[in-house]
Amino acid sequence: MSRISKIIASLQAQNKKVLIPYLVAGDPEKGLTVQLMHALVKSGAHIIELGIPFSDPSSDGTVIQLGGERALRQGTTLLDVLAMVTEFRTTDQQTPIVLMGYLNPIEIMGYETFAAAAHTAGVDGVLVVDLPAYECDELFAAVRPRGIDTIFLVAPTTTAAREAAICENSTGYLYYVSLKGVTGAAITDKTAIRDKISHLRTITNLPVVVGFGIKDAESARDMADISDGVIVGSALVDSISHLQVGRRYSEDELMEVVSVIAIISEALKKH
C-alpha cells in the first residue's frame, strides 16, 4: 500500500476527510516553497500537491497562471522542484507529495530520468493534466515499478467508457473536477457533483477527492460531505501571491499566509 493510500485509508477509518492543498513550486521564489509546505502540514494538510510551473498552463485559471509565471521568473525548473521535495523529506517523511503539472517538462527530461529522480526525492504520486489515460504507457512504465501513484482527473464531461478506463489506470485517489472550466472558477451545481460521485462509487473503490472551485470553509464542507475530501488550489495560491520576493518570513508569518488551509481543516473537523 502506498503512502497516499495508507493515509487516506486511515482517515476514512476515523470517518475524517482528506485535505490536499495545491501550491506552485517556486512561487514566489524557490527558497520559500519548502517552508510553505511545512506550514501547510502544520495547518492540517494530509497530502500536498506541488505544481510544476509551466509556460502554457491551458487548464488553469488566472490565479494559478500567475503563480506559474512568478515561479518561472525565478527560473524554477523540474529539477528544482525535485530538489524541493528532497529538502522537504529531510524533516518530513510522512506527508505524501503529488507532483502536478503538464507533460512537456517531464517529456523533455525523459520519463526514466524523471521517474528515477522523483523516486529518489520521495515523490508519492504524479498527476499530469494534459496526459489522457490512453497516452500514458511511457509514463506508467517508468513510474509504476517505483511505487509512484498515477492520479487522473475525472470531469463532469467524462463519458462512462472513459470513467472505467480512468479508474483502471488510477492509483492513490481519483481527482474529481467539480465544474466545466479552469481552476479557480466557482462551483454552481452541487447536486450534479453528488450524483456523479455516487456513480463513481459504484465502479471503483478508489477514494474520490474533489477539486476546482473550493475556496473557503463552506465550499470545502459542501464538497467533503459528498466525497472523501477536497483539494484547495487557487485560494491558497492567491494568498501566496502577496509574499514578496527577497524578503525573509518567520514561521508565524507563513502560517498566516496559509491560514485558509487551517480554516478549512477546522471546518472539516467539525463536520
Binding site: D130, P132, A155, T157, T158, R162, K180
Partner: peptide
C-alpha cells in the same frame, strides 16, 4: 495524439 485536459476529452472525441 490528443493531449488535452480531461474536461475537453469528451469534446474532441
Amino acid at each position: 495524439g490528443a493531449f488535452v485536459g480531461e474536461t475537453l476529452v469528451a469534446a474532441v472525441e
